[in-house]
Design a protein around this nucleic acid. Structure first.
Lengths: 145, 145
DNA sequence: TATTGTTATACTCTATAACTATA
DNA sequence: TATAGTTATAGAGTATAACAATA
């Protein structure tokens, strides 16, 4: 498998590294504004889409299920999340956001300006080009699961 | 400041999120192959460029100086890094890679295929376009410090 | 006085292994 | 027996505050 090391490629790699650093910085900052850690913010954002079994959360986060217990514990202690039984399988617990949790998730989402704000400086055509290039970089394996 | 929420922008945001996730995954994986944590790998990569005062490392990592003590402690315990006095200021300690540390840093760098390997599928012109778009997204504030 | 690095402390995230209750 | 979630434990990163050595 060919890996190129010409100056152009190296600069693109460096720029992507800068994008990654900036994305994380802004994400953690937005989470901190709501007194959440990055992991807590990610989980809350996930649950805002749909109530999710503990095991499934671990898969999404790519971590061990035992870690999710603590993260949900802390979100639950703050009244942002609750555990519900799964009618279909009594072993399963569904983590679901409370009203307060949904509100926090919405404010969190709105404060994630990065990648939206800087994109405002690009034309529709440029955004389309960027989208296509990113798609090709990521290949088919873009799905989260 | 305008923030757009049209489908195209949202898709680009999502794609950037996927790039960030994939970048981290591969970075952590490469570090783990050398039995290093992500933070240790980042510091080692930094020191491979030049010996650095503890305080400066904290600035680069955007963390408190007290944390750097532990990270360098663990790298030093494994013989990858050493602390040297700074002749110019006896308060300062310079963290510097050992020969083993430099070798590990080099292997680590070579194993970071992401963003280089997928870029191989793009033409020179496409890479140039991607570079220009990323530059504009990041603005002038790309410097790490 | 101010700065550099360290220590002490506490919290969160992480993986591993063992446990429980269901299936 | 297999699976879902939890507990217990230990290691690593993080911030805060207090400290010694040096500027």
């Amino acid at each position: 498998m060919v890996t190129r090391s010409d100056p152009l490629t190296l600069e693109v790699v460096e720029l992507i590294g800068a994008v990654v650093a900036r994305y994380h910085e802004e994400y953690e900052g937005a989470a901190a504004q709501h007194s959440l850690t990055g992991a807590q913010a990610r989980v809350l954002g996930l649950l805002a889409l749909e109530p999710t079994p503990m095991r499934r959360i671990a898969q999404k986060l790519k971590c061990e299920p035992s870690n999710v217990t603590g993260i949900i514990d802390r979100l639950e202690a703050r009244g942002l999340v609750e555990r519900r039984p799964d009618p279909a399988d009594r072993r399963v617990k569904l983590a679901a956001p409370t009203d307060a949790g949904r509100a926090t998730a919405a404010r969190l989402r709105d404060s994630l300006h990065f990648a939206r704000e800087p994109l405002a400086g690009l034309s529709d055509q440029e955004r389309t080009t960027l989208r296509d290039l990113l798609r090709r970089m990521l290949g088919e394996g873009t799905a989260e699961e």
